[in-house]
Structure formats: structure tokens, C-alpha cells
Computed example of a mutant assay.
Amino acid sequence: MEYITLFFSALVDLSNAMAPYILFGLLFAGILHELVPDSIVKNHLGKDSIVSVIKATIFGIPLPVCSCGVIPLATSIKKSGASNGSTLSFLISTPITGIDSILATYGMFGWVFTIYRVITSTIISIIAGILSNMYVKKEEIRAARQTKPKAVFSMAAPTTENTIMNFSTVQTQQSSQKEEVCSDGSCDEKKNGIVKSTFSYAFGTLLKDIASPLLVGLLLGALITVAVPENLSEILVKYNWLSYIIVIAIAVPMYVCATASLPIAAGLMLAGVSPGAAFVFLSAGPATNTVTIGVVKKMLGTRTLYIYLGTIIVGSIIFGLGLDYLFRDVNVKELVHMDEHASLIAWASTFVLWGFVLFYVIKPYFFKEKECHDGSCGTV
């Protein structure tokens, strides 16, 4: 009974510490989604250069896209002509950060930890992209020679050009339509539509995508906080390298988004694990999982896959060691910011967040049959 009480107490503390920042981050992410069109991202990543890699990394940092959501976006960017390095750096930087994750990291661990996380993820992404462009050129040349004869006699090039022309025509028509919409005095309705779309994306699409992993992350974080025995944390603190190996072995294949990984990292630190080991989980966990590994191999090749995994693992460990050195004189548990007396805003945010999370997690089980009553399931 005592453990159950401690578990729920830890769960409430984690929720109160994170909820305000997650909700604000989601709202900011919705605004960002409406202001920054996807075409801007796609049009700057085609060159096989360091500048293109840096652009891809910078574009990816604030985007509120999780580990699974970045896969179709990266695939689209690659098909639009982005280089291997640009695609890879975007694929790494985007799921590690995100404006909602950045704000939640600040709320949980403070600004020093947050800045360190953003800078190091940027460095890892850029290095991976540069290495990919350097060492994959031979593979691309070999593949181009094999496919070149087929491309000469195929209709692929005209089809692509027609597609681009059609897409441009659609964009022009859409632009004209937008001008016509505002010419009849309906701009106020358009603004209302933008506000509605912002909230719909933030608390509908985005929060729905992360609801399940966030729930799991909060539960695991609270469980780790109370379940890790004292002697195990002492072993991990004494033999730091062991904790790094354990965390890497768990983080690389596991699917966890950047925001949902925060309560797990907090639980590790509250159990006595070093900040560096927790950082390794925050870095490698969102950036890799079994699905992304398969996609990278298929889309970018085996050599790029090795660069992808090697850069993330080695970079995370090196920067984890650096973080342990930076906080060598700081009590680990003092880094996690959880007030005993949460404010009214924190409690309200917790209720709102848990309401949405439980709704999106439970909804498929209760409304699945109801949605099929109209016969639409057979038409999907």
C-alpha cells in the first residue's frame, strides 16, 4: 500500500512539473505549424553541402514532430530532392527537440540542461549529415550508373516534370483563391479559421499523436522513481559506464517521443542515476527506434544507417559524459524541479493534460463500434 501511495504521489509531482510547459508548448507548436508551410522546409534542403545540412538541422529543431511523425516528412523531403545528409540531419534533430519538448525540458530540468540538450542535438545532427554526404557519394554514383540506362528510355522524367508543373499550377490557383477570399471581406473568417486550425493541430493532431507514449512515459517515470532499489542506484552511480550501456541498450530500439521521454529521465535521476545517463536516454531515445532504423536503411542505404546509429550512440555518450562533468558538484536530485506545493496553474494544467491524454487513449476502444455503424468501415 505504501508503494502505491508513493507511486501516485510521484505521478502527480511529475504531472504538475511538466503539464503547464507541455500545454504551452503544444499551443506554440500549433502557431508554428500554421505560420511555417512545409514547402519552405522542402525547398532549402536539396544541395549536397554543409550549408544544406545545417539548414535541415535548424529547420528540424523547433518543429513539433515526434519520432513516428518525422518519418513521412523526411521521406517527402528526400523525394523532393534533398540530399542524404540533409535528410539524415533532419531525421535526427526533429524528434530530439521540438518547441513543446524544449519548454517541457526547461520546466523539468532548468535552462542549463535545456540549452545543453538543444546544442548537443544540433551538433550530433550536423555531424551525421556531413558524414553521410562524405561517405555515401560512392554508393550514390554506383546506383546512378546502374539506373541511368533505364532512365533514358523511361517516362519518369516527363512524369516528374508534369507533376511539378501541376503542383505549381495548383499552388497558383490556391494563391488566387486566397486573394479572392479576402477581396469579399471574409478575412475575419479566415483569421478565425487559423485560430481554430491552431488549436485543432495543437490539442487534436499533435496531442493525439503523443498521448499514448506520454501516458506510458509518465507512468514509467513515476514507477522508476519509487521502484528502483537503493543499492541499484548506488551501483549505477559508482559504475557510471554501466548505466550508460544499460540506457543505450534500452533507448536505441525503444519508441519514445521527446516529450514523453522527460518523465522517464526524471525518474532515473530521482532514483540516483547520473544526469549524463539520463541525457543519453533523452538523446538516443527519441532519435532512434526499430521503425526508424528500418526506414533509414531502406531510404538512405546501409552505410547511412551505420552513420546514423554510430553518430547518435557515440555522440550521446560523449555529451552525456560532458554533462556529468558539468554537474559533478551538483546533487542529482536537485536538478529535477518538482515543487512540493504546486500552483493553481500547475494543478489546472495537470487536469487538462490528463483529460486529453485519457480521452485519446480510451476513445478508440469505446467509439470504434459506433464509428462503424454507418457502414463507413467497409468503404475505407
Results as ranks from 00 to 15, higher is better:
residue 143 A to P: 01
residue 122 T to L: 14
residue 199 F to N: 10
residue 114 T to Y: 02
residue 184 D to N: 09
residue 178 K to A: 13
residue 173 Q to R: 15
residue 193 G to D: 08
residue 113 F to P: 00
residue 128 A to P: 07
residue 244 Y to V: 04
residue 247 V to G: 10
residue 171 Q to W: 02
residue 124 I to R: 06
residue 165 M to Q: 15
residue 215 L to Y: 06
residue 134 M to I: 13
residue 162 N to D: 10
residue 117 R to T: 01
residue 208 K to P: 03
residue 131 L to E: 04
residue 142 R to F: 07
residue 124 I to H: 02
residue 184 D to L: 12
residue 135 Y to F: 14
residue 129 G to D: 05
residue 167 F to Q: 08
residue 217 G to C: 02
residue 230 E to F: 03
residue 109 F to L: 13
residue 217 G to S: 01
residue 123 I to T: 03
residue 129 G to T: 05
residue 195 V to W: 10
residue 119 I to P: 07
residue 176 S to M: 12
residue 222 A to V: 01
residue 173 Q to L: 08
residue 243 S to H: 07
residue 131 L to D: 03
residue 134 M to L: 13
residue 201 Y to C: 11
residue 137 K to V: 03
residue 202 A to I: 03
residue 229 P to Q: 00
residue 156 A to E: 12
residue 165 M to V: 15
residue 203 F to S: 09
residue 239 Y to L: 03
residue 130 I to S: 07
residue 188 D to A: 14
residue 236 L to Q: 07
residue 124 I to P: 07
residue 215 L to N: 06
residue 169 T to M: 15
residue 112 V to W: 06
residue 148 K to V: 14
residue 200 S to D: 12
residue 141 I to M: 02
residue 179 E to C: 04
residue 154 S to L: 11
residue 225 T to W: 00
residue 140 E to I: 06
residue 108 M to L: 15
residue 124 I to F: 02
residue 246 I to K: 03
residue 167 F to G: 13
residue 182 C to P: 00
residue 187 C to Y: 01
residue 169 T to W: 13
residue 137 K to I: 05
residue 240 N to E: 11
residue 232 L to E: 04
residue 149 P to E: 05
residue 178 K to G: 02
residue 132 S to M: 08
residue 209 D to Q: 15
residue 210 I to P: 09
residue 159 T to V: 08
residue 162 N to G: 15
residue 170 V to D: 12
residue 177 Q to M: 11
residue 164 I to H: 06
residue 221 G to P: 00
residue 199 F to W: 12
residue 114 T to I: 03
residue 225 T to R: 00
residue 164 I to D: 01
residue 173 Q to G: 12
residue 204 G to L: 13
residue 235 I to R: 04
residue 111 W to S: 09
residue 131 L to F: 10
residue 147 T to W: 05
residue 131 L to Y: 02
residue 122 T to Q: 09
residue 237 V to F: 09
residue 217 G to V: 01
residue 129 G to A: 01
residue 214 L to K: 04
residue 187 C to W: 00
residue 157 A to F: 10
residue 135 Y to L: 13
residue 230 E to V: 04
residue 236 L to E: 01
residue 121 S to P: 07
residue 202 A to R: 10
residue 184 D to R: 12
residue 175 S to D: 13
residue 211 A to W: 15
residue 237 V to G: 02
residue 191 K to R: 12
residue 207 L to S: 01
residue 149 P to A: 07
residue 200 S to M: 13
residue 175 S to V: 07
residue 108 M to E: 01
residue 167 F to A: 11
residue 233 S to N: 01
residue 141 I to P: 02
residue 151 A to L: 14
residue 247 V to M: 13
residue 127 I to D: 08
residue 166 N to H: 11
residue 237 V to D: 11
residue 186 S to G: 09
residue 163 T to M: 11
residue 137 K to W: 00
residue 187 C to R: 00
residue 217 G to F: 06
residue 187 C to F: 03
residue 140 E to R: 06
residue 190 K to L: 10
residue 242 L to F: 05
residue 229 P to V: 06
residue 132 S to V: 04
residue 114 T to F: 05
residue 142 R to Q: 11
residue 120 T to M: 05
residue 109 F to T: 04
residue 233 S to T: 06
residue 245 I to Y: 08
residue 226 V to K: 02
residue 135 Y to K: 11
